[in-house]
Design a binder for these strands. Sequence first.
DNA 1: AAGCCTCAAATCGGATCCAATACAAGCCCT
DNA 2: AGGGCTTGTATTGGATCCGATTTGAGGCTT
Lengths: 237, 237
Amino acid sequence: MTIDPTGATDAHAASSTPDTNLGHGAAGARVADRLREAIIDGAFPPGTRIRQEDIASQYAASRAPVREALRILESEGLITRVANAGAWVSRLNLAECEELYRVRERLEPLLLSMNVPLLTDVDITNLSDLAHQMERAADVEEFLALDRTFHMTTYAAAETTMLRTTVVRLWNRTHHYRRAFTGAVRADDEDTAVHLDHHMLVAAIRRRDTDEAEEVLHRHIRRTRMGLERHPEIFEN
Amino acid sequence: MTIDPTGATDAHAASSTPDTNLGHGAAGARVADRLREAIIDGAFPPGTRIRQEDIASQYAASRAPVREALRILESEGLITRVANAGAWVSRLNLAECEELYRVRERLEPLLLSMNVPLLTDVDITNLSDLAHQMERAADVEEFLALDRTFHMTTYAAAETTMLRTTVVRLWNRTHHYRRAFTGAVRADDEDTAVHLDHHMLVAAIRRRDTDEAEEVLHRHIRRTRMGLERHPEIFEN
DNA sequence: AAGCCTCAAATCGGATCCAATACAAGCCCT
DNA sequence: AGGGCTTGTATTGGATCCGATTTGAGGCTT
């Protein structure tokens, strides 16, 4: 994995390449990477106020790179800034989250279709393993991590300038709500469909059936979107 | 028009709302707006080096807001920065441009579908007028402006958090190449299809036939993409 | 008692200053 | 004579300082 210089990727979520952000001229990106990871991991839930001075001292930097980091994360949609007032971790309402999911429904099948011909047999074996591990995942956090790795593996083969970056950012923006949703739904049987989808997806990829893979993924995402609509309480407060 | 606070829109192309960027705490956005417009208008073609000091003195600002502007435009994909080296107006090769067009093929029909039910009869009359004006457009620049207004009118009715912004940015990134392409093709008869598409689109919208509108738009964009593939010389140098 | 206004502290944005890096020209060496 | 290294200059990145704006608290008025 480790993909792209425009601000978001890695198996986990973040970083503009794992250790390019070390020398001079990268403090902003470094801070952005750490902050992004903290937000996605849930350390700063939506609505949290982000004060420049706090972040600066916490990450041993001056306010200048922190401000750069905030602008980076703003452009990724993870935080919301208002002039002379401050920055907050972005909060989504149900309609906004639905919009992001509708975009994902269109973009991810495209990205997948560009990858199906390029995935190796090793990749496919890994995907199959991941699909099985997910069924046995102990808790929500483990499931989310496996799910992310599964789909990102599915997207990692093709060279893209911006499509993969865009998709990763969509995942990042919705991660908090996916966590809440998964927690609310895990017991239900709507979650068995998720695993069926994953296995169907692996099978379609193995057969190099791009069209079916696209359709399965589209339905997969759409089902989650419709699940969200049945759990509006996630977006309350 | 005038739509959105996240970095790109307006009938023309730019601006985070027409004059919000005046007071304190908006110098960066103001510079970004002007620079974005200059790039789109062709004043700075792809590959042009952008020096912070130049922009600062040219726009009567200090280097700090210029750097913010550069980061904004980088996040929009309009310029490319490399640490300790500088910033250049982004250049696309054929493959990258194709990728952006494939993304547009998927996203714009979605955005359109959200707008078809909301467009007013006045909007539709305007669209019809624009479609006719385009057929009589005197030069490439006028055609491009009308085309942009036409499609943006088509997208302006629905409230979206990020989809419209995304689409506008895709337009901005490809504008230079659309200009070159239109110039190269205007005489050909592949350009009559463009006008037929526009009229079919207006008719479908008038009938509130969302599905047909989506299909027409999809083919419209795909045809341009395939046209680009026949003119690789646009991307040489 | 509730709402509005005033005032002050906290925080953000912008300008300037200094350090670090990259690019280029010139020199030396082979 | 050509290529690689070194040094110098231009440009960017980061830190600090200062001015502008917001917001919260307290008191006053109605």
